[in-house]
Amino acid sequence: MTSESLSPAATQTFSPEPRVASPKERHLGSGQFIRLGSLFALLLVFIYFSCMAPGFSALSNLANIVEQSATLALLAFGMTAVIIGGGGDVIRGGIDLSVGANLGLCIAIYAVSEAAGYSDVTAFLLTLAAGLAVGALNALAVVGLGVLPLLATLAVMNICAGLELVLTQNMVISSASPLLAWITAADWLGLSVTSWSFIIIGAVMLLLVHRTPWGLRLQAVGGHREAARAAGLRVPAYRAASYLGAGLLAALAAILQAARLSGSSPGSGDILLSVVLTSLMSVVFSRRLLPSIGGTILSVLFIGCLINGFQLLNVSSYWVNGVQGLLILGIVALRSLSDRPGVA
């Protein structure tokens, strides 16, 4: 039978229908486009400051960017782990607003311990214990008591800020311990101890969260909580571990920051806006629009380039805060639009 003898209805029956992309495929396509656009924006920022800011692209300045970004990176790694374990919804999912105040409190504890005559080892251990204690308090409030993460960590942030003021009386406390002197002076292959801390801890977090069974289970707990619970995963334990990890990283960041500041000074923990921005921005460097440690590393370098470039151009730091606020608003809006049904 030839095609001419077929009826129009039969011909329509045998004609192939166009394939419609699934919502998941549209989401992945949108994520890939956003990721490439973000990488292009990072490249444009680097090219702009290389042309406009004297000495920006020099190797010594690039190493300086890494060093300046180390404290932010460690705090952002902890925040990202909390967001991954709690889910993408930062209101009911996971967020830790206390990381900046935890940093300031840990710096104060280290400086006060040194001033009181304690050894480097004792002061270091007290600092780690303080960071873990704050993480445990967050875990108790969020996981144990079921308080919304936004409210629980906001309350803990104020507790940390108050304790820091009690310890320091809002005054500068100098510290010149051998440990801080070693962190400041030592270097290897042209990079300081602070820079190597960024690189090594970043690599460890990257492997831990994305290449180990524990990290994959943490992602499952955040992305599909009920399915993870049905599979036998201890969901509360994984969520609590993410807050404890954030507290530990805040304590390690405090040691690095104390070395940079030569002790404790008022306002040393005022870094929350940058931490939130880098953690949220990690999604735009991900193909699936999900928070990741790799995306956090790129976000930290992006913010580090902005801050360093503005400094070289003698632009007021107030503009940096404004730009960070706009970036947070844009990223949240972009994430919301990408999650809407029918948005490619």
Rank of each mutant, 00 (worst) to 15 (best):
G37I: 11
A220G: 11
G86P: 12
L36R: 10
R229H: 08
G232Q: 01
M1Q: 13
A251W: 11
R211E: 13
Y238P: 15
I173P: 08
M52C: 06
S60H: 06
A250N: 15
R239K: 09
N102K: 04
S268Q: 14
A181M: 12
P23M: 03
G263P: 13
I34F: 06
R287W: 13
P178N: 03
M157C: 09
I199K: 01
T122E: 05
S192V: 03
L273S: 10
I307G: 05
I201P: 10
V90W: 01
S98H: 01
A155D: 13
E4C: 15
Q12W: 14
A136T: 13
V204N: 02
S338K: 00
A220N: 14
V283P: 15
A333E: 13
A9T: 05
R288G: 09
I293T: 09
Q324H: 05
R335G: 15
A133T: 12
E17Y: 14
T71W: 12
F49N: 02
A116D: 14
L334T: 09
I109G: 02
L329G: 11
A141L: 10
F285L: 15
S175K: 01
S119L: 05
S177Q: 01
A176H: 15
A53K: 01
G94M: 05
L148H: 12
I201A: 04
Q32D: 12
L256R: 07
S30W: 06
S174L: 08
V193P: 07
G304V: 04
V112G: 07
L125M: 10
D339W: 03
A258L: 04
S174K: 08
P291V: 00
L150Q: 03
E226H: 13
N314A: 00
L97T: 02
R229I: 06
A133P: 12
A152K: 08
Y243L: 10
V156Q: 11
C160R: 03
